[in-house]
C-alpha cells in the first residue's frame, strides 16, 4: 500500500458515495447514466468473485463489499425507486459495443486461461470504457450538473492515481502488471477532455456546459 493507491481507492469510493448521495438527496437521477452504473456493477461483480476464493486483507475485503453494495444500491435507485426521473431518452449508448469487445479481448490477452482470471481481465477492460455512456449522455445534453461533474472527476482521477501507484510499485517492488497499466492509461485518456473542462470551468464556479 502506498499513498497513491490509498488516495485512488478513496477517490473511487468518493465517486460512488457522491453519486449515491446526489440521487438520494435530490430524489432524482436526472443526468445520470444508468448504463454506466450498470457496467460498473458488472465490473465489480466479475472482478470481486475472488472474495470467495482468496483473502488479501480486511481492508481489501471491506472495500470490495462497499463498492459492490453501494453500486447495486445506486442501480436500484435509478431503475426502481426513482425510475420516473431517469433520463432514458438521453442514455442511449449501446453497451453491447463495450461488453462484447472487452469479452473478446479478455479471451485473447490475459495472464492465465482460467475462469476467474478471464473474468478479472474482462472487468479491467470493461472498466476502462464503462464511463463512455455517461460521457455520451453529457455530450448529448451539452451540460452536466456540478455535482455530476464532481462525481465524474473523482471517478476519473482514481485511475490516474492508480497509474502513479503502478509506477511507484515498479520502482520499489519491481512489479508490473501490463494489463492493468494499459487499461488504466486508456481509461485515463478517455477523461482528458472532461478533465480539461472540469479544471477550466467547474473549479472556477461555472457549470459544465459544452460549446454548441
Amino acid at each position: 500500500m502506498n499513498i497513491f493507491r490509498l488516495l485512488g481507492d478513496f477517490s473511487h469510493l468518493g465517486a460512488i458515495i457522491i453519486l449515491l448521495l446526489k440521487i438520494w438527496k435530490t430524489r432524482s437521477c436526472a443526468g445520470v447514466s444508468g448504463k454506466s452504473v450498470l457496467l460498473y456493477a458488472i465490473v465489480f461483480t466479475c472482478r470481486y468473485l475472488d472474495l470467495f476464493t482468496h483473502f488479501v486483507s480486511l481492508y481489501n475485503s471491506v472495500m470490495k463489499i462497499i463498492y459492490l453494495v453501494s453500486t447495486y444500491f445506486t442501480l436500484f435507485l435509478i431503475y426502481r425507486k426513482f425510475k420516473a426521473t431517469y433520463d432514458r431518452n438521453h442514455d442511449t449508448f449501446r453497451i453491447e459495443f463495450l461488453i462484447l469487445p472487452s469479452a473478446v479481448l479478455a479471451l485473447l490477452w490475459n495472464h492465465e486461461y482460467s475462469v476467474l482470471e478471464i473474468l478479472w481481465t474482462f472487468s479491467i477492460y470493461l472498466e476502462s470504457v464503462a464511463v463512455l455512456p455517461q460521457l455520451f449522455m453529457v455530450s448529448k445534453t451539452g451540460e452536466a450538473e456540478t455535482i455530476t461533474s464532481h462525481y465524474l472527476f473523482a471517478l476519473g482521477i482514481y485511475r490516474f492515481l492508480y497509474i502513479l501507484n503502478w509506477i511507484y510499485r515498479y520502482y520499489t517492488e519491481n512489479f508490473i502488471d501490463w494489463i492493468s497499466v494499459v487499461a488504466g492509461v486508456v481509461q485515463t485518456v478517455l477523461y482528458c477532455d472532461f478533465f480539461y473542462l472540469y479544471i477550466t470551468k467547474v473549479l472556477k464556479g461555472k457549470k459544465l456546459s459544452l460549446p454548441a
Binding site: 493507491r5 481507492d9 473511487h12 475472488d50 482468496h54 488479501v56 486483507s57 481489501n60 472495500m63 470490495k64 463498492y67 495472464h111 478479472w120 492508480y162 501507484n165 515498479y170 517492488e173 519491481n174 512489479f175 508490473i176 502488471d177 501490463w178 494489463i179 492493468s180
Partner: peptide, 10 residues
C-alpha cells in the same frame, strides 16, 4: 521484473 498478479489492488 515480477509480473505475477497477486491482485491486492481494487
Amino acid at each position: 521484473v515480477i509480473t505475477k498478479n497477486e491482485k491486492d489492488e481494487l
